[in-house]
Design a protein around this nucleic acid. Structure first.
Lengths: 157, 157
DNA sequence: GATAAACTATATAGAGTTGGTAGAGATATG
DNA sequence: CATATCTCTACCAACTCTATATAGTTTATC
């Protein structure tokens, strides 16, 4: 499960949108500029998140994108699956997108499959139990290790 | 960490070579035919395993490849890393091949990195603790669930 | 030492994926 | 209706993956 650039951009955008959620829609251009992401590429990404029901959009003047679900209801696994496909290293080990490997003689007795299911399960356990809210919370915790304001100066940019 | 075809072939070949270890070298052609793998592609794979010290080769007539290490000393993580690279989903979460992400503002406070380290660690815990010997043992256990010979008929090929 | 078996090395090629751009179309607002 | 903004389709260059081709080099054996 190599994380694609697309997923990274998506998560960065979602982190911002989770924070801005109550303040109305954010425009693609603003988001692209603030987070330094390629604008046209970001359009695709946000559109996909919109079509998938994670974001909602408002067209025309004053429009933009807004998080549709609550941040604590958006699992990281959902985003990763959307852009990078199944979590499992092999199709035969996938829970939701099971497919036998091309040249597999017998799925039921394949030892490698068992191993890959373990890897998939471990990955899913982590990503299913973390949400956008958790991600932002961790980000805050990292920037403010123990409430010291002095540290903030070293973090910028 | 999507498992490549190359790694799958490598592991299949190694499983056979682990079993044949005491019986002298096995030729590429034999291996390719028995396991139905593309011969020329397999040559590359075995060569890489050889250069990496997992196999040893004997050239000339009557030569072939043989497992250099004991099956219980070949970790699955070693094989996966050789062909598919680092286990971590992002370079910044890799233990042995750390590299900051292209556009990362601050590696130390990146929340996603923490998550990806968890995934990497979980994957590594599994693959570091399994060896070729384990893989073959599991394969045997799957084919002979509880010592019943009758089942073997259904496994064929 | 000729021969054939077998590994070694480099180059190449086609298919698919990834990251990114272009431009026209749809729609909401004022 | 002018403008801001999202939507959609097409396209493209670079890269990776899988696999093959070709030309060696080494070794066993007769």
């Amino acid at each position: 499960m190599k994380l694609s650039q697309k997923t990274k951009y998506a998560l960065r955008a979602l982190q911002v949108l989770a924070r801005e959620r109550e303040r109305g829609p954010v425009q693609i251009a603003t988001l692209a500029e603030r987070e330094d992401m390629p604008r046209k590429f970001l359009e695709h990404i946000l559109l996909e998140l919109n079509n998938h029901g994670i974001l909602q959009s408002k067209r025309g003047k004053g429009g933009g994108y807004q998080l549709r679900k609550r941040p604590e209801d958006v699992r990281l696994s959902e985003v990763v699956r959307l852009f990078d496909g199944p979590l499992a290293p092999t199709p035969c080990a996938s829970e939701r997108a099971f497919r036998p490997c091309e040249d597999c003689k017998d799925v039921d007795t394949c030892a490698l499959r068992g191993v890959m299911r373990e890897v998939r399960d471990a990955t899913a356990r982590i990503l299913d139990n973390l949400t956008l809210a958790d991600l932002n919370q961790r980000a805050d915790a990292a920037v403010l290790p123990s409430g010291t304001a002095a540290r903030r100066a070293t973090v910028g940019r």
